[in-house]
C-alpha cells in the first residue's frame, strides 16, 4: 500500500447536511451528511445503486436535494449555484463528451465555458493534456476513443479550470492497470491543494488514495470516518494466524481448546488445513486467533510446554473489504427488517 496523502484537518470545504433525494416514491438518498476538508481525498464508497451518483449530483448542484443542504467552498449549492459551479470540477460517471468533436476543440469549448481567458487557454489545455497523458492527441475525434482515453478527456475537462473542489465519479473505470496508477498519482497530486471527493465501488482505490471514507448503502450513510476506524469496526481485537503441529496426530483436537483456555486469547478458530503454507502433508494445522492484545508469547510458551511444533505466527492486517461487507451487510439486514423499504 502506498503512503496516504498528507494529513487532513484543513478547512471544511464541502459540507453536506441531511441530503435527501426522492424520485417519485423512491428515496434514492436519505439523510446523507459528510464533510470534506482541504487537502483531502474523501472516499465515497458503496455497492452499485447505493446512491453514490445521486449524492455526487446533489453536491455539484446538478440535482436539487429534496431535503437537506450542501455548502461547497462557502456557497450554498442551491442558493449560490453559479458560484459553486465555478469552483467545482466534476467528472460524471460517464465522461461528458461530444463524439463529433476532436479532443482539442472539445477542451477549447470547455475552457471557453469555464471562462478561461483566451490568452491562457492554449497553454492551460496543453498542461492538462500532458498531465493526463493526452499530449499529441489534439486532433483525435472523441467518438473514436477507447474507454480509457474517454476517461482521460473527462478528467482533463474536470480539472481544466483548476477548481477548488473536484468531484470524481468512478474516475478509473475502464482504465488499464498502468493507466490506473498514473491517474491515481495525478489525483493524489491534485488533492494537495484542493478537495477531492472520490466516488467508487473499488475498495482498493479507496485504500490507496483516501484516509477517510463515507460508506453508503441503500441511500444511507452506514459508516464514515478514517479507514483505520472503519477497519476497527469489524476487527474488535486483532487477528493472528498460527500454524502448529501436534507430535501425535491423534491428539490434534486438543490444540484449539488449549489455546482457547489461555487468558490472552478471546477466540480460536481452526482454519481449513488446505490453507496451511506448505499444504497439510507435514501435519501442520492453521488457526485463526482473536485477541484484544498480543497473545503471541503466551502461545509460543504453551507450544513449547506441550511439545508442539510452531511454524508460523503472524498478525493479520485488518481488511477493509471485510469491514465493508460486515458493515453494509449488517446495516442492510437491520434495515430490511426495520423499515421494509
Amino acid at each position: 500500500m502506498t503512503a496516504p496523502p498528507p494529513p487532513a484537518g484543513g478547512d471544511v470545504v464541502v459540507q453536506a447536511v441531511g441530503l435527501r433525494r426522492r424520485f417519485g416514491d423512491l428515496v434514492a438518498v436519505d439523510d446523507v451528511s459528510f464533510e470534506a476538508h482541504r487537502g483531502e481525498i474523501l472516499g465515497f464508497i458503496g455497492p452499485n445503486g447505493a446512491g453514490k451518483t445521486t449524492s455526487m449530483r446533489m453536491v455539484t448542484g446538478y440535482l436539487p436535494a429534496t431535503e437537506g443542504k450542501a455548502v461547497v467552498a462557502g456557497f450554498d449549492v442551491f442558493d449560490d449555484n453559479m458560484e459553486v459551479r465555478r469552483r467545482v470540477g466534476y467528472l460524471p460517471e460517464r465522461p461528458p463528451l461530444y463524439p463529433e468533436l476532436t479532443i482539442g476543440s472539445y477542451l477549447q469549448f470547455v475552457a471557453e465555458l469555464r471562462g478561461i481567458e483566451r490568452g491562457r487557454r492554449d497553454r492551460r489545455i496543453g498542461e492538462v493534456m500532458d498531465r493526463v497523458g493526452l499530449s499529441g492527441w489534439e486532433d483525435r475525434v472523441l467518438g473514436s476513443l477507447s474507454k480509457g482515453y474517454r476517461q482521460r478527456v473527462g478528467l482533463a475537462q474536470a480539472v481544466l479550470h483548476d477548481p477548488q473542489v473536484l468531484v470524481l465519479d468512478e474516475p478509473t473505470s475502464g482504465l488499464d492497470p498502468a493507466q490506473v496508477v498514473d491517474i491515481r498519482e495525478f489525483i493524489r497530486d491534485l488533492a494537495r491543494e484542493r478537495t477531492v471527493i472520490l466516488s467508487t465501488h473499488i475498495l482498493s482505490e479507496v485504500e490507496r488514495l483516501c484516509r477517510r471514507a463515507v460508506l453508503i448503502a441503500r441511500g444511507r450513510v452506514v459508516a464514515q470516518g478514517s479507514l483505520d476506524a472503519l477497519r476497527a469496526r469489524v476487527d474488535r481485537g486483532t487477528r493472528f494466524r498460527v500454524e502448529l503441529r501436534h507430535p501425535d496426530a491423534g491428539e490434534r483436537a486438543q490444540i484449539a481448546p488449549l489455546i482457547g483456555a489461555l487468558e490472552e486469547v478471546e477466540q480460536v478458530r481452526p482454519l481449513d488445513p488446505a490453507d496451511a503454507d506448505a499444504g497439510d502433508d507435514e501435519g501442520f494445522l492453521p488457526f485463526e486467533i482473536r485477541a484484544p492484545g498480543d497473545p503471541r508469547t503466551a502461545i509460543a510458551r504453551l507450544a513449547t510446554a506441550r511439545g508442539w511444533t510452531l511454524r508460523a505466527m503472524e498478525r493479520r492486517a485488518p481488511d477493509l473489504e471485510e469491514a465493508f461487507l460486515h458493515i453494509v451487510g449488517k446495516e442492510g439486514h437491520t434495515q430490511a427488517r426495520g423499515e421494509g423499504r
Partner: peptide, 14 residues
C-alpha cells in the same frame, strides 16, 4: 443521451 447535459448544468452556464 450523451451525458453532456449534466456537464452543461454543472459548468457556469446560465
Amino acid at each position: 443521451r450523451l451525458g453532456t447535459f449534466e456537464f452543461l448544468m454543472t459548468a457556469p452556464v446560465p
